[in-house]
Amino acid sequence: MKSAKTTLSLKKAILGVTAIVGLAFSAQAQAEELRLLTWGGYAPDAVVEQFKAETGIDVKVTKSNNEEMIAKLRATGGGGFDLAQPSQDRISGAQIENRIYKPMDLSKIDSSQFISSMLEATKANTTVDGEVYGVPHVWGTSGLVLDTKKAGDVKDYADLCNEAHAGKVSYRLKRPTLIGFAFSMGMDPFEAYGDTAKYQEIMDKVEAKLISCKANVKTYWEGGDALLNLVRSGEVVAAMAWDTGGWKLNGDNPDVTFVAPASGALGWIDTFALPRKTENEEAAYKWINFVMRPEIAAQITAEAGNFTASKGADAFAEDKLKAQFQASFPEQDLNNIKWYPTVPAGLETIEGKVLDRVKAASSN
């Protein structure tokens, strides 16, 4: 009996030690997980597996968009995730209002892997109280999609109003069109963001231009597929549209492609940002440095369809896409991209009224 009790006690002791060890391993496993809040295509399965094989860190991917990211982080005070990927113009306002992010430690980021102009632009646009809250990842632009044989004279947004292309151009009645036309008319709307009266003055001039241009417009496109079909059919020879749409058309017709406007393409950037309550900050920095390697970044481009801010990643892209990118963005055009800053309160109301008046005006 005594022997049986001793054996039982020993078994209990072993089970106790096993449970403690198990809890330790469980905690370790939990610590070695990166909870990523991102967009579809930004963390392909193959990249996640390569990262895990190299670092031992698993990546739990939650796909989202700007509105949902901010809502999730606001609801938890910046908890639940270790790394998020909001667009650069959605960081400073959310941080000022809700304090959902924490500053980036730039010493832990390999800045040599980034296209410097994009890194500096994102740092500037995500700085709050002297602290940087975001670095760039995936980006894209809007500019000109042209049939270069039929509309080779179109070099900037305002050239869409050239009489030679009456009835054969298209653009959206959205704020990027207002911004693009302003730049092409020699004004800087972003510089006027802090001056409502100055911004209104710029928008009044753009409004007059767009109203005078109505006769040139075949249609104000809304869905991307509809625009692509108009260009394919030859009904539209010049448009303001996204780079990826132009490259897609180029695959069908080498005369059609995306062209960066002389005044600069308009660029958006999805970033890396640290939620305020991140629990695995070191893993977040490891992931950033890993996916910004050119050969890894090229895999993300293949999955997402957009390029990243990784310096030299285009060299690893599929040959056709690489050629399209390099033709559309020689270095001077890449450095001339106008990156969207955070929109101050009140400006979108001004823009909305301008767009309504343009839409209501009769074409001459």
Score class of each variant (00 low, 15 high):
residue 120 E to T: 10
residue 132 V to N: 11
residue 107 S to H: 05
residue 81 F to S: 11
residue 109 I to F: 03
residue 74 R to Q: 12
residue 141 T to I: 05
residue 79 G to Q: 07
residue 156 D to I: 00
residue 101 Y to E: 06
residue 85 Q to C: 08
residue 114 F to A: 04
residue 135 V to Y: 02
residue 93 G to K: 12
residue 75 A to R: 11
residue 149 K to G: 07
residue 110 D to S: 13
residue 126 T to N: 09
residue 131 E to Y: 10
residue 118 M to Y: 14
residue 127 T to V: 08
residue 119 L to S: 14
residue 134 G to V: 05
residue 140 G to Y: 02
residue 89 D to F: 08
residue 122 T to K: 13
residue 76 T to H: 03
residue 78 G to K: 13
residue 124 A to T: 14
residue 80 G to E: 09
residue 115 I to D: 11
residue 112 S to K: 13
residue 128 V to P: 15
residue 134 G to A: 14
residue 89 D to H: 11
residue 87 S to Q: 09
residue 73 L to F: 04
residue 155 K to I: 00
residue 157 Y to S: 01
residue 82 D to W: 01
residue 72 K to R: 15
residue 109 I to N: 13
residue 150 K to W: 00
residue 137 H to Q: 07
residue 102 K to T: 15
residue 114 F to V: 09
residue 86 P to G: 05
residue 110 D to Q: 10
residue 136 P to L: 00
residue 130 G to I: 12
residue 143 G to Y: 00
residue 157 Y to V: 02
residue 120 E to C: 05
residue 118 M to I: 10
residue 76 T to S: 12
residue 75 A to D: 12
residue 146 L to S: 02
residue 88 Q to W: 05
residue 115 I to W: 07
residue 104 M to E: 13
residue 141 T to A: 02
residue 85 Q to T: 08
residue 105 D to Q: 08
residue 109 I to T: 04
residue 96 I to T: 14
residue 156 D to H: 02
residue 127 T to C: 04
residue 105 D to W: 01
residue 99 R to F: 01
residue 86 P to F: 01
residue 99 R to S: 14
residue 127 T to G: 06
residue 138 V to Q: 08
residue 132 V to K: 05
residue 86 P to D: 03
residue 101 Y to D: 05
residue 97 E to K: 14
residue 135 V to T: 14
residue 151 A to H: 00
residue 105 D to G: 04
residue 152 G to Y: 02
residue 110 D to R: 07
residue 83 L to V: 05
residue 80 G to K: 04
residue 125 N to Y: 08
residue 77 G to R: 08
residue 100 I to D: 03
residue 82 D to Y: 05
residue 145 V to H: 01
residue 151 A to C: 01
residue 84 A to P: 15
residue 89 D to I: 04
residue 126 T to L: 07
residue 118 M to E: 09
residue 83 L to Y: 05
residue 147 D to T: 07
residue 146 L to F: 01
residue 143 G to E: 00
residue 140 G to C: 02
residue 99 R to A: 11
residue 104 M to G: 08
residue 152 G to K: 00
residue 115 I to L: 10
residue 121 A to E: 11
residue 97 E to M: 04
residue 149 K to V: 03
residue 151 A to G: 01
residue 108 K to N: 09
residue 122 T to C: 09
residue 88 Q to G: 08
residue 124 A to Q: 15
residue 113 Q to R: 07
residue 74 R to Y: 04
residue 122 T to H: 13
residue 76 T to P: 15
residue 122 T to Q: 04
residue 136 P to Y: 03
residue 71 A to L: 07
residue 125 N to I: 06
residue 97 E to Q: 05
residue 140 G to S: 11
residue 115 I to M: 07
residue 121 A to C: 10
residue 109 I to S: 09
residue 117 S to K: 12
residue 156 D to G: 01
residue 128 V to R: 03
residue 126 T to W: 06
residue 97 E to T: 14
residue 70 I to F: 01
residue 95 Q to H: 10
residue 94 A to S: 14
residue 153 D to H: 09
residue 112 S to F: 03
residue 106 L to F: 06
residue 107 S to P: 13
